[in-house]
């Protein structure tokens, strides 16, 4: 029983990092209607810029901000020069474009920082124990940060005018356009949010494990799965989907060899989609 709870707890902490990535993927899909393959590499980019700041002696919060700013800056440049010109083309053009952006970002990172692994300058501490369960200080930070960000996104979407416009644009692009919504403004905000989340995810992922040029790419498949599981385009679905995948991956290792953990998580995704083809929270989405 304690084992099961511990696995669930571990699953929630990995799910929280995954949720931030999946949330970014789903926001981009919701408004711009394409799955951005570059999102994983934006995560890596954030982690490396935070590393530079951390090496310069800045604390983790400031380092994270540097990572977020770098993500927003470079990501927005790619939006202006790649995704915006491709917007009027069939959506496959944007997907292919994002593959190109992913490769450019990854290889720029490889070129500048090399293939070696890195870590933030944080001492490794023993975990905190309560009632037979164990959690580390970093994991508590990860969970709290992730939940604060998710709540923040929720408030923007529900309570602000631009958030409502964003949801309107996600629901029906044509209708939104005729009701005086400025799509560029909304899309810009969407990118800023998605890229900021990627930056934070990079910091948290680097904190939890190690920083490598492939860290974001490696997590991208799970993030896509989480977004689809929750109903792609739906922010709450992405969060729920990510935590479901995180928990099922960890819990599955109690019953199957660990090499099958990803397979089990995907099996759960397939089963869910069989019964709810548009995901847990999904509405029908039309891709043009």
């Amino acid at each position: 029983m304690v084992d099961l709870l511990q696995h669930i707890l571990n699953g929630i902490t990995s799910g929280c990092v995954l949720a931030l990535v999946a949330l970014g993927v789903t926001l981009v899909f919701g408004i711009s209607r394409f799955a951005s393959v570059a999102h994983g590499d934006y995560v890596t980019l954030g982690a490396y810029f935070a590393l530079v700041a951390n090496r310069a002696g800045w604390n983790l919060v400031l380092s994270g901000l540097v990572g977020v700013m770098a993500c927003v800056f470079f990501g927005y440049i790619f939006f202006i020069f790649v995704f915006r010109p491709l917007d009027r083309r069939p959506k496959i053009a944007s997907v292919i474009g994002s593959i190109g952006v992913a490769l450019v970002v990854r290889h720029a990172i490889l070129f500048i920082w090399g293939t070696e692994q890195h870590s933030y300058q944080v001492a490794i501490e023993r975990g905190i124990r309560f009632m037979g369960l164990m959690i580390t200080k970093n994991e508590i930070i990860i969970v709290i940060t992730a939940f604060i960000l998710m709540a923040f996104i929720h408030l923007i979407l529900k309570k602000t005018r631009i958030g409502k416009e964003m949801r309107a644009l996600a629901d029906d692009q044509d209708l939104a356009r005729v009701t005086a919504i400025n799509p560029l403004q909304v899309i810009t905000l969407m990118w800023i949010l998605a890229l900021s989340l990627a930056g934070v995810a990079g910091l948290l992922l680097g904190l939890k494990s190690i920083i490598t040029p492939y860290m974001g790419w490696d997590i991208l498949l799970s993030a896509f799965a989480a977004a689809i599981l929750g109903g792609i385009g739906n922010p709450y679905g992405a969060m729920a989907g990510a935590i479901t995948i995180g928990v099922s991956e960890e819990v599955s290792t109690m019953f199957f060899p660990p090499t099958y953990r990803l397979a089990v998580a995907f099996l759960i995704m397939i089963l869910t989609l069989l019964f709810r083809p548009s995901g847990i929270f999904g509405q029908k989405v039309e891709v043009k």
Binding site: Q6, N10, S14, S209, P258, L262
Partner: peptide
Amino acid sequence: SVVYNPNQPTYKAELSK
């Protein structure tokens, strides 16, 4: 004896075994 997959961000489950 545990065999694990490459490129995971965490190996807690494998480690606990």
